[in-house]
């Protein structure tokens, strides 16, 4: 069976990379004695499926992980899981909730359609920020070029900027709150910052939510499992 869990990543541990976190998770699941299913082949690996990578240095209140377990679990054991895992994870990682996933749910990479971020704008002023937000929102297109497999590829970011508002960071520093699309590719917070003001250094960023939008309805990834459950139950009656 598969379970999906959500965790936060705050403090010093935010400087670990996505790859680092994959290794930390593998070890911590073994430490917590969670029997995982393994892949076949010469070097079997536990079946873990991570969501969209969080940039190294970024904090998050909404990181997701799908785990394929070796056995079926009782719902009461699943509800115990956040406490057990938080105890085995490094300081700064708190597992907030875990749910069983019904069969056939899309992977996080496939399913997540947008993420909400707060992005610090180091040393800016309220006036400059307002003007820059307005300029981005008014632009018909925002073309960026990046290199892929040695060839320049041009993308338009503008359709992927779904929400862009001024906000304050927890310590009162100026920033923006942005919902950024992930299809066909995820816009990185740093790309938005460059679009707003290329002169700014990288400040703090924090992912607040990941969203799965289906037929216009926006849900959090844990709710997807619950929603499918309801449908199956209705259908079974």
């Amino acid at each position: 069976m598969k379970i999906r869990l959500v965790y936060s990543k705050l403090g010093k541990v935010r400087f670990t990379s996505h790859r680092d976190m994959a290794r930390v998770w593998e070890r911590c699941l073994r430490k917590a004695d969670i029997a995982m299913a393994y892949s076949e082949g010469f070097s079997p690996r536990p079946k873990l499926s991570f969501g969209l990578a969080l940039p190294t240095g970024g904090e998050s209140l909404a990181e997701y992980l799908d785990i394929t377990l070796a056995h079926e679990w009782e719902p009461s054991d699943i509800s115990e899981l956040p406490r057990r895992l938080t105890a085995s994870m490094p300081t700064g990682i708190d597992v907030l909730e875990a749910v069983a996933l019904p069969l056939g749910v899309d992977s996080l990479q496939q399913a997540v359609t947008s993420c909400t971020w707060t992005i610090e704008m180091v040393g800016t002023t309220i006036e400059r920020r307002s003007a820059q937000i307005a300029a981005v929102l008014d632009a018909p297109t925002l073309r960026v070029t990046r290199e892929r497999k040695g060839k320049p590829v041009e993308d338009d970011l503008r359709p992927l900027i779904l929400v862009l508002d001024p906000t304050e960071m927890p310590d009162g520093a100026l920033g923006v709150l942005a919902e950024l699309g992930t299809k066909p590719r995820a816009v990185r917070p740093s790309e938005l910052l460059t679009a707003l003001d290329p002169s700014l250094p990288t400040g703090r960023i924090r992912r607040l939510n990941q969203w799965i939008t289906v037929d216009g309805a926006r849900r959090e990834p844990l709710a997807v499992g619950a929603a499918v459950d309801e449908r199956t139950e209705v259908g079974a009656r």
């Binding site: 010093k12 541990v13 400087f15 680092d20 190294t56 240095g57 990288t202």
Partner: peptide, 22 residues
């Protein structure tokens, strides 16, 4: 740490400098 935290965003592999080992 407060001073370093501001600077680590600018270096390669910042996890080298955070400690926090099990």
């Amino acid at each position: 740490w407060p001073e370093l935290e501001r600077l680590l965003g600018r270096v390669q592999k910042p996890a080298r400098y955070i400690g926090c080992e099990d």
